[in-house]
C-alpha cells in the first residue's frame, strides 16, 4: 500500500468543483486548499507505485481542471519491507500494452 501527501494543482476558480468531484474517488482524501484556491492538499492511496501513477493519470484525464499532481510525501509501507529484504520483484516486470491500446 502506498499513501501520499500530494498537491493537486487546479485552475483558478475551480477548487470547489474539483473538491466535489474528488469525492467520487475513494482513493482520494481531500484536506485543505491554499488561499488562492489553486492547490489542494490530498492523500492518494494505491496498491503500489504503478497503481498510483494510474490513479494520477485518471484524475488528470477525468477532471480537466486539474493541471498537475505533485507528491510531497510518499509512504511505501510494504515496499519498504521488500527493499529491506533486498528483494526486487522481477516477476512484476510484466509488459505494458501497446500505445494504441492504452
Amino acid at each position: 500500500m502506498v499513501i501520499t501527501g500530494s498537491a493537486v494543482l487546479v485552475d483558478r476558480g475551480s477548487a470547489e468543483d474539483v473538491i466535489e468531484r474528488l469525492k467520487q474517488y475513494p482513493q482520494v482524501t481531500y484536506h485543505v486548499a491554499s488561499d488562492a484556491g489553486t492547490e489542494l492538499v490530498v492523500n492518494l492511496e494505491a496498491d503500489d507505485f504503478e497503481d498510483l501513477e494510474r490513479l494520477c493519470s485518471r484524475l488528470k484525464d477525468e477532471v480537466c481542471e486539474i493541471v498537475d499532481i505533485a507528491h510531497i510525501y510518499v509512504n511505501f509501507e510494504d515496499e519498504i519491507h521488500k527493499i529491506r529484504s533486498g528483494r526486487v520483484d522481477k516477476t512484476r516486470l510484466k509488459k505494458p500494452k501497446f500505445f494504441d491500446e492504452r
Binding site: T4, G5, V32, V41, Y73, V74, N75
Partner: peptide, 12 residues
C-alpha cells in the same frame, strides 16, 4: 502525517 507534511511544504 502525509497531508500535514505536504501542507507544510506548500505553506498552507
Amino acid at each position: 502525517s502525509a497531508a500535514a507534511f505536504a501542507a507544510g511544504a506548500l505553506n498552507i
